[in-house]
Amino acid sequence: MQKLFRAFLRHPSGRIGLAIISLYLIAALLGILGITPHDPLKLFAIDRLKPPNATYWFGTDLLGRDTFSRLMVGIKQSMIIAFSSVALATLFGTIIGLLAAWWGTLWDGILMRIMDVLLAFPAILLALLIIAIVGPGTGTSVAAIAIVYTPIFARVVRGPALSLKQRDFVDAARTFGSSQPYILSRHLLLNLVAPLAVQVTLALAWALLTEAGLSFLGLGTQPPTPSLGLMLAESKNLMTQAPWLMIFPALTIMLGILGFNLTGDALRDILDPRMERREA
């Protein structure tokens, strides 16, 4: 673990990505604890549409709420949704992919065709469909994003699992009489940690974007809880009078995605077995 961290610090984009994510995680943590410069929901009626200044670092919105505080809570909201939806997608995707590869033939066909159907829809459209059925809310967003990204994990796991299944060490395990759960966890899953870790970081970036998109359309987080997409949506009518209302949430989304992408790239380089051998 320490070795991994040090490798991150050596990697140029890993360093930047890790810094951005740390910053976001701190902001999210403070958001959860309620430690913000101002109350994100409080209306400072006399300070409406103030540009950035010493009191309100990122300015205030039409109702006089502090943008900076609202961004912190928005980051918290996005992070919770992104992490929990990706965790669910990883869990289900990995199970589906592993079982499809392990059982093979008919099960492989059935499971992977279902995944293909899910994958055929554009992410936002599929999420919209789910929300239209269940109704908007944080929980629905998590479920929708998780369902959208499950097939990607199923595919990422199935390919390598199919080739791992043919490897001699799996045959060797069978001759010892090892149980199926043991073979699946120790011999298949353990060798899939590297590709999964990369996929998880990249999926976090997409999930962040999808969540912002859903909120922007009014289908994700419901007001008055602040969220990045919602803030962007509210700002679009005031684009010329109060550009900071649009610029800061947009930058926050962009920087977050950049952070996860850079980390994912770095992780891919670091976990590459060819790199590993060079260090060993």
Binding site: R167, D168, F169, D171, A172, A173, F176, G177, S178, S179, Y182, R186, H187, L190, N191, V193
Partner: peptide, 21 residues
């Protein structure tokens, strides 16, 4: 090279047949 799981150490590799039984 193919018959030993690269992610397990010698102890885990040696223990596997015994644990399986």
């Amino acid at each position: 090279f193919a018959s030993l799981n690269p992610r397990l150490n010698v102890e885990a590799l040696m223990a596997e047949p015994a644990i399986a039984n």
